[in-house]
Simulated assay, not measured.
Amino acid sequence: MPASASISRRQLLRGRPLPAPFEPRPPGAVSLDACTGCGDCVRACPQQILSIAQDRVILLPRDECTFCGECARACPEPVFGKTRIMGHLVAISGDCLTHAGISCMTCRDTCPEDAISMRPRIGGPFLPEIDGAACTGCGACIAPCPNGAIGIIERNMADAE
């Protein structure tokens, strides 16, 4: 559900608000409760993919994260842990050109971890599949996607450890 979605009438009448939308964090960010929103990590990021929103750091999926660790080194608060694992993975939506019968392998070609493979199918172009264990969540495949069909979903951190 998009972040701009409002509460439905049914949710209002039942007293069930929408869950907060998932906001991607920089690699290794374990506790955003400690984030003061100072922006030191944003200024330190050489890829310029970090921003401050609602007094917390968020990752903007517009370029690839190189896991350089500059954000963690610049942060004066206990926001970052020792491991550099993203709290998210990428996911390919139904807007992928392959679902419209158009052959496209841009996501596979740009993935530095080879986490995206193409599954053959009869009567149509190959379909992209993401290996969740191999995906680092770096975002290298997001910007090059010609149809904007790649987004971010929250990673089950129990699986990542």
Rank of each mutant, 00 (worst) to 15 (best):
S4F: 03
A5E: 13
S6F: 06
I7Y: 02
S8G: 15
S8I: 12
R10P: 02
L12M: 15
L12I: 15
R14D: 10
P17G: 14
F22I: 13
E23Y: 09
A29V: 11
S31E: 06
L32P: 13
T36R: 08
C38K: 13
G39S: 12
V42M: 01
A44I: 06
C45R: 09
Q48F: 15
S51R: 15
I52V: 15
I52L: 13
A53K: 14
V57D: 02
L59C: 12
L60A: 03
L60N: 08
D63Q: 11
E64N: 10
C65T: 05
G69R: 07
G69L: 07
G69H: 07
E70D: 13
C75R: 02
C75T: 02
P78Y: 08
P78F: 03
R84L: 12
R84M: 12
R84C: 02
H88T: 00
H88E: 08
L89R: 04
L89S: 07
V90Q: 00
D95I: 01
C96H: 06
T98E: 00
T98Y: 02
H99D: 13
H99L: 14
I102C: 08
I102F: 01
C104G: 04
C104T: 09
M105S: 09
T110S: 03
P112D: 05
E113C: 04
D114E: 09
A115W: 07
I116K: 09
S117Y: 12
P120K: 14
P120N: 13
I122D: 04
P125M: 04
P128Q: 04
E129G: 00
I130G: 01
D131T: 12
D131L: 12
G132S: 03
T136W: 01
G137L: 04
C138H: 01
G139H: 03
A140R: 01
C141R: 04
C141K: 01
C145S: 05
A149V: 05
G151I: 04
M157N: 07
M157S: 06
A158R: 09
